[in-house]
Simulated assay, not measured.
Amino acid sequence: MKTILLIAHLIAIATGTGMSIANYINIRIAAGEKGERREALAFLRRVLARIADVVILAIWITGIGLWLNLPPAEEPNVWFLVKLAFVVLLTLCHGLARMTAGRMMRTGDQSLFARMELFVSGVWMSALFAIILAVLAFET
């Protein structure tokens, strides 16, 4: 069971990483666009963000499942605790990126692109570190 959970967990984190990198590229492209192209890219970001909500939920559920499958006498190792910090950072950056995107949509303030780019970068960097640390934390 632990191996299946680990596979699902790593797939979820890898999916989140790929999506956040795609979102980062989208933001970089959209910064120079106007009109319908910019709107289409904004629509794509919204779709990716909705899917990312589910992916982050999968990361948390599979991670909690892995933690619950630790032997009763075994406490989480340091790799697990550091990984948990990166997953919290990933979740925080995702939430802040979503809030910034929502604010951009409501106000039309395009100057928030740089802030959103920073938060999306935080998501994919955190996810990359979380993948590495998950492998170290859950050695089979």
Rank of each mutant, 00 (worst) to 15 (best):
A31L: 06
L84I: 10
I21G: 13
L68D: 04
R98A: 01
K2N: 14
V82G: 03
I51Y: 15
N26P: 03
V120L: 04
V120M: 01
A137P: 05
A49F: 05
Y24F: 12
A49Q: 08
E33P: 00
L10Y: 09
L90I: 08
I13R: 00
F129L: 13
A14K: 03
V123P: 02
R115D: 01
A58K: 14
M19L: 13
F113A: 12
L84Y: 12
P72E: 00
A42C: 00
E75H: 14
E74W: 02
I27H: 07
V55L: 03
I29S: 13
F43K: 12
L96P: 05
L57P: 05
I51A: 13
R46F: 09
V123F: 00
A8R: 04
M116H: 06
L41D: 02
P76Q: 07
L89C: 01
V88A: 10
E33W: 03
A73D: 10
V54L: 15
I13M: 08
F113D: 11
I132K: 01
L41I: 11
L57G: 12
S20G: 05
I131Q: 07
R45E: 14
W79S: 13
E36A: 15
M19V: 09
L112K: 00
V54M: 15
A97S: 11
F80S: 05
I56V: 08
K34R: 14
G65S: 08
E139Q: 15
F119S: 09
E74L: 08
N77R: 05
G102V: 14
G35S: 09
I132G: 05
R98C: 02
I61H: 06
F43V: 14
I7V: 11
L112Q: 03
L128Y: 08
L10D: 06
G16P: 00
I61P: 06
A114T: 09
F80L: 10
T100C: 03
M19Y: 03
L128A: 10
I64L: 07
E139M: 14
I11G: 03
P71Q: 01
L96F: 05
L96H: 00
S111Q: 00
L57Y: 07
R106S: 12
M104A: 03
R103M: 15
T140L: 13
A30S: 06
R50C: 10
A31V: 06
W124T: 06
V54F: 15
L6C: 08
A73M: 06
I59T: 03
T140D: 14
G122W: 01
A14N: 02
A31F: 05
I51W: 11
M116F: 03
L44I: 15
G65E: 01
E39K: 11
M1S: 13
V120W: 03
A73E: 07
E139S: 12
W79H: 11
